[in-house]
Amino acid sequence: MDHAGVLRLFDRRMRRDAPPDHAGVRVEDRGDVVRWTGGPHDWNGVVWSDLDAANADAAIAEQVRHYGALGVGFEWKTYSHDTPADLGERLLCAGFTAGEPESLMVAEVAAPTAPAGGGERPDGPRLVDVTDAVGIDLAVGVHEAAFGTGGGRSRDQLLERLAHAPDSFVVTLAMAGDRPVGSARIEFTPGTDFAGLWGGGIVTGFRGRGLHRDMVAHRARLAADRGARFLVVDAMPTSAPILRRLGFERLGTTTPYLREP
């Protein structure tokens, strides 16, 4: 893979020029910063910036004022190749809190592999695609059980997308009988060449059985059906080794910086 070329394409398609994920969010191009602005339940934040040491602090202050006037918290999603090199330190000085760094990993859609027979083992959980509110509730419940965190905000955002852009994502559940034991989703951004893998979680007792791999391969087939060229993942340390074995390559690191209203 041409890492530099794919990274340039990713920056242009998925950051600078990417459309909002639903009609309630607007993209605002400020020249050296592109931000998304929506309501209190939407994802608000900076998706791209091209700054230097001379203008970074002023640009950060402008975003703080903008979202502060709206009374919403927001995220500045940084990448390891963003400039200036000390952007993260400047954000911390401006009152942001750093989240956990994750690996930006990309694979060509044809790369992820799965067991023969389509990625589901006869003796394992079956994979079911859902695109309704019931399925979203089940997926959020799996996420809460798997990670021990609340999923209310994620539920609200996915329901909003379901209402305004139902074709922009698919939720996949792993079902053991009638019990959901795994969940993940794929997000599509038309015209970008990329499909994003998000929200993968498996409850205790079903980990270590290849289910994560099966869900990745399943979503890769969904991406191929939509004509996507690349799969992109923000991978936690626990997922990165699995993804690497499936053909994903690490292009850098992404770190969220959060600021409360």
Results as ranks from 00 to 15, higher is better:
32 D>H: 12
194 F>T: 00
237 P>G: 02
128 V>Y: 12
252 G>S: 12
200 G>T: 05
25 V>Q: 01
38 G>P: 03
201 G>V: 02
250 R>K: 15
246 L>I: 09
186 I>E: 00
176 A>S: 13
193 D>S: 10
129 D>F: 10
27 V>G: 12
74 F>V: 00
135 G>K: 03
86 D>F: 14
23 A>V: 13
201 G>P: 00
97 T>L: 14
11 D>Q: 14
108 E>H: 13
233 V>S: 01
260 E>Q: 15
142 V>P: 10
91 L>W: 03
229 R>T: 07
222 L>W: 05
126 R>W: 09
144 E>N: 10
204 T>Q: 15
227 G>E: 13
233 V>D: 00
235 A>F: 00
138 L>Y: 04
144 E>C: 12
76 W>A: 00
172 T>S: 06
120 E>V: 15
206 F>I: 02
104 L>T: 03
113 T>Y: 10
191 G>F: 09
141 G>N: 12
117 G>P: 07
261 P>A: 08
53 A>S: 08
232 V>G: 00
53 A>F: 03
44 N>A: 12
114 A>L: 15
107 A>K: 01
175 M>A: 11
207 R>T: 15
8 R>M: 14
149 T>P: 03
2 D>W: 07
203 V>Q: 07
12 R>H: 10
188 F>S: 05
123 D>L: 13
222 L>H: 11
25 V>E: 00
114 A>F: 08
66 H>A: 15
75 E>Y: 04
44 N>G: 09
126 R>H: 13
136 I>M: 02
95 G>Q: 07
67 Y>F: 08
246 L>Q: 13
18 A>E: 10
105 M>H: 04
161 R>P: 02
69 A>T: 05
118 G>V: 05
192 T>P: 02
7 L>G: 05
80 S>L: 05
221 R>W: 00
125 P>F: 08
218 H>F: 04
36 W>A: 05
16 R>H: 10
95 G>R: 08
107 A>R: 03
37 T>C: 12
218 H>R: 06
1 M>V: 00
229 R>A: 08
137 D>Y: 05
28 E>Y: 05
190 P>H: 14
150 G>K: 09
139 A>E: 01
47 V>W: 11
88 G>T: 04
246 L>Y: 06
139 A>T: 06
95 G>P: 02
89 E>K: 14
156 D>E: 15
236 M>I: 07
243 L>H: 07
229 R>F: 06
155 R>A: 12
85 A>R: 14
76 W>L: 05
144 E>F: 12
216 V>D: 10
27 V>K: 14
250 R>T: 15
245 R>K: 14
46 V>I: 02
76 W>C: 00
125 P>Y: 09
73 G>N: 08
12 R>F: 08
71 G>C: 04
168 S>P: 09
171 V>H: 02
227 G>P: 10
32 D>K: 09
57 D>R: 05
235 A>T: 04
257 Y>N: 06
19 P>R: 03
128 V>N: 11
229 R>D: 06
41 H>W: 06
250 R>V: 15
95 G>V: 09
15 R>C: 08
115 P>C: 12
86 D>A: 13
248 F>K: 01
147 F>Q: 09
118 G>Q: 04
8 R>T: 14
166 P>K: 04
182 G>W: 11
102 E>A: 09
